[in-house]
Design a protein around this nucleic acid. Structure first.
Lengths: 279, 279
DNA sequence: ATGAATGGTCTAATCGTGATACCATTAGCG
DNA sequence: CGCTAATGGTATCACGATTAGACCATTCAT
């Protein structure tokens, strides 16, 4: 994003198309950032945690096992663990029955949430726009391509989430919130899988990973509306109704964004309802 | 995508949600593929070529300059050049006025195209679905967020493309096809830039890169319809009409896919108009 | 107390990368 | 023709990342 340099181009294009300066977003060659193996390990473990494959209290496999599974040396695994430990994602315990324990993300105080969310607003807007683009298409395509096993797994997620919401008292338990979010992720990922498009699948996984940090510190209770929306999406996909599936997904995501909006500063001058148009 | 291993999870989730097997797409930890720096160089140079920043006949900057710009050693640059040379993307010439010359992609014979495209059909479908999802959203958002400079650059691209199409004789010139594709890429990238969403921007760039190999060997003449469609997209974005911009983009991409379809085997049993629903 | 599991530490070898100098080839020019 | 400059080709040494393996230290269950 820094340097730029138009290549030695003896055959000047502009001979033909005249004033076609344009030359798109910047030049062609920019600096390379070498990627260490331990960084890749960090990324993969983070992704697993962010997608809910490990919830707080779970332990990662022992270092030796991680090394074997990832086909890297234990040294590299340990470097990665130092990073994750430093970022507060895991806690390292020595001795038997010890291990690499996934920590709960610190919840912010009520008065901290607003200012925190304010700083995340732009990122969240981008993420949700991207989600609407890709997940609506995912739902649309899934409606005509899903197979029985995928429908079964979607149903399984819905069942699990409903169970977690059953008693009001359980809605504020941290561990349950983590489990709910894991099932929520899984539902959306199965829909993406069912759409049979690897690019869209990757996009959905990426957004879920990207959402973790911004909203992980904020959620304190489960939203019932999510269950209803998930049911609607599921029903439309099961019925093979592509338009309905897409619209149900859109409504779900828009609603989800709005419920986040309630955690933000109440229209304090900003938020001039720009682009109030339906996305 | 190979190994899997559910973490040591003493706190069994299934205690609560009962038969929630699900456990989404596979396990959590898979093998790491270390990424060498020279691979990153290869990727970036490829991307620059695929996006049309360098067209056949252009020369990349000299090795020493590339090394300086990318902040890597010449050794690493040279490793990357070996790969690009091996893949037939560049030709290395020694001596003064020599350099790293971008080669034209070999065009296939008419009788080869069908079987080649047949093998690419699935990939192309995925790419185009992903494009529709993201670029329609990009156009929609761009309609309300674009600034004057972005409009100017879009217009500049349109002008350049029209100029290239002016005389029928010039439509089959290889160099012109490359220039046309570069401007086409640039137009779509500026739209993506104007949407102000970095995720969508990245998605658009990714798809254009992904399209290069499948269709690079096939195109032999320029399509006029692209110009008309581009004009329509531009007009809608200029007018701030989000719905029209999105729809114009959709039409453009769908048409583009259909014109590719004409290069494929003519419904030889396959292509049972599944998902014939409008995407 | 003992043993097993697990993280912590150390060491030697290997490989990727960087830095630098110098060689070989080629085009342009006096 | 012969120089010079630009550019790719080669060689060398140094350093850091990664691997492989052994061994130490801590903790819990029995």
């Amino acid at each position: 994003m820094n340097e730029q340099l138009s290549a030695a181009t003896p055959t000047d294009t502009s001979k033909i198309d005249g004033p076609s300066d344009a030359k798109v977003g910047q030049g062609a060659i920019s600096s390379i950032r070498p990627v260490s193996t331990y960084e890749l390990v960090v990324e993969q473990v983070k992704r697993a945690i962010f997608l809910g494959r490990f919830v707080p209290g779970d332990k990662l496999p022992p270092e030796r096992d991680l090394a074997a599974q990832m086909l890297v040396s234990r040294t590299t695994i340990r470097e990665a663990m130092r990073v994750l430990e430093g970022e507060g994602l895991i806690q390292v315990k020595r001795g038997a029955m010890g291990g690499l324990v996934v920590k709960a993300q610190t919840n912010l105080q009520a008065n901290e949430i607003e200012s925190y969310m304010e700083g995340q607003r732009e990122l969240l807007d981008s993420i949700y726009e991207y989600r609407i683009a890709n997940e609506c298409m995912a739902a649309r395509l899934a409606a005509t391509r899903r197979n029985k096993d995928q429908l079964r797994r979607m149903g399984s997620c819905l069942k699990g989430m409903k169970a977690l919401c059953e008693t009001p008292a359980m809605r504020a338990i941290t561990a349950n919130i983590a489990r709910f979010r894991a099932l929520d992720s899984e539902f959306h990922l199965v829909v993406a899988e069912a759409c049979g498009n690897r690019f869209i699948m990757q996009a959905v996984e990426d957004t879920r990973t990207a959402m973790f940090l911004p909203i992980g510190k904020v959620f304190k209770r489960l939203e019932d509306s999510a269950n209803e929306h998930h049911e609607a999406i599921y029903a439309a996909i099961k019925d093979g109704d592509a338009d309905a599936a897409s619209e149900a997904m859109r409504l779900h995501i828009v609603t989800s964004r709005e419920s986040l909006e309630n955690l933000m500063p109440q229209d304090s001058g900003r938020r001039p309802k720009k682009s109030a148009k339906r996305v």
